[in-house]
Design a protein around this nucleic acid. Sequence first.
DNA 1: CTGAAAGCGCTAACAC
DNA 2: GTGTTAGCGCTTTCAG
Lengths: 331, 331
Amino acid sequence: MDEQVRATANIRRVAEAAGVSRATVSRVMNGHATVAPELAERVLTAARALDYAPSQVARSLALGRTATIALIVPDLSNPMFQDVLRGLSLAAGADGHRLLIAESNEQVEDEEVLALEARRRCDGVVLASPRLPTADLERLVPQLAPLVLINRTLAGVPSLSVDYAAGIQDLVAHLLSLGHRRIVYLAGPPASTSNSERLDALVRLSNNAFALTQIACGATFENGHAVAGEVAGSGATAVIAYNDMVAFGALSGLHELGVDVPGQISVTGFDDIPFARFTTPPLTTAAVPRNTLGKQAWHQLHTQLTGPTAPEAVAFRPRLLVRGSTGRSTS
Amino acid sequence: MDEQVRATANIRRVAEAAGVSRATVSRVMNGHATVAPELAERVLTAARALDYAPSQVARSLALGRTATIALIVPDLSNPMFQDVLRGLSLAAGADGHRLLIAESNEQVEDEEVLALEARRRCDGVVLASPRLPTADLERLVPQLAPLVLINRTLAGVPSLSVDYAAGIQDLVAHLLSLGHRRIVYLAGPPASTSNSERLDALVRLSNNAFALTQIACGATFENGHAVAGEVAGSGATAVIAYNDMVAFGALSGLHELGVDVPGQISVTGFDDIPFARFTTPPLTTAAVPRNTLGKQAWHQLHTQLTGPTAPEAVAFRPRLLVRGSTGRSTS
DNA sequence: CTGAAAGCGCTAACAC
DNA sequence: GTGTTAGCGCTTTCAG
């Protein structure tokens, strides 16, 4: 019968069917106050009959906004970005905005074009691009704005970061309170700024308060596992791992060596990944508020979208979670 | 000086600056073969000078396609969907398509409008909606097409699922080969179809080959942990957990009870979540090819976008991963 | 090979 | 209140 109807109805068809102008259809569809109830009813009926729903693309063009934002991340398999994504998605969704997501797959050289391309389809960008050179980023800012940066700062741009130093400070204070005075740090990737922030904080704090040694390690379970022997032989009574994965590996390696945690040595992680509570023993760590980062990212973007605002750079303090992997120093 | 230039250049401005028509600018920007090199050069220069990049929204409207697809999931924190997302994102991205993502946050009643809304902004949909009633889904199909279903099937719609029965079969075969004849199943949520698929497969296989018992459990670490005592007292020599998290909990509980795994009892999981290789002992499990699901989803959507195709329903067989948590039966 | 002009579907002044 | 009309920025026949 009506084979041609399947070609997704548009506003004109509805207008014709309802015997009104397109403007009226538009008004009704957008709930614009004043349309005679009788007309509104006719429009709604026609719309329903034709399975009509306004084209968001056309709408976006006419309005000059898309009600969509983009998240650009280097790696979707990183729990950090997964949670940021989730927080962002929920928060933006609650305010009626869609989320476009672009992953650079760690290809820094692609990030610029990815971000620009994404920005052209939406109203603003949340960018997590730890490795993009600052100069490039600065050049990009005007074209990406409204923009929110995750885990890095730049003058004049709103940003959300994690205060790694504060987290380390809490971890250290906790260990000191347990009597530990010889601490070994299992260092993360040397190039990573999150590693140097942690290390810097440690060095700063160690000043007389405790003896700090360092073992080059990495960011993975295997890395942590591999240095377990070295840790056991280091004479340290406590280890601060670069992150939870490394701590997890160290825990596993120490277990195999018959070293009791926390009886003989205490171990802390960093991040509070989902499995940190399930290790044996459960891992004492500094919880990075990843979800909050996402929520706040939307908040900051939202305010930029609705009006002019002063850029803010906020750093979130991780939360110390004391679990079973740390105990009183016995030496 | 040129304050008004900041209002993002459009095609007309570039055309004027280059002294050509908008059509020519369009041709150049799209690499359309034949434009005099000299003109092309002028256009490119002007575009560069004005920081011009075509509006993707306008382009989408004119072309009738957005080069964007949507993924609808109930819960982004579920590792299953995270990996599907990742596979989909990478695959679609490689073919120059963007990804819109919508999370229903488990609110089934929102999924319909979410999906429809998303569909209006893009060219196709990948839908993972395990709980949406079939009748509703059927009604939705025409409006969502091109469409690919994840983990559920529907006549006439391409879909990608996991063959849970096959995974169970492999697990059972593995256990039988190790001499196990008394197996206990730690059941997942009763309402979940993935639980009943596993259970059905077990019941079917148990016929004379082995004694099957069942313990009501759940889907979490805590659930698995809680039934460790019951498992130990069950007389079974092997346990098949609903999923890895449950197996993980059981492992932990058995450890605390001093029950040796796999010495006294073997344990298997299902899914191969990222941490399954790191448990003590590492978990034997059936790996669900989550990434492949995402990749294939793009593949199926892509073919639909490029031409008419017969819908396909493909089920992926999990891969048996034998690790340290299973061993020869000693009883 | 290039330009003029119509149109994608919707919104928003502006009139009536 | 409702319709007319002029865009939003781009693509694409169709002439020349």
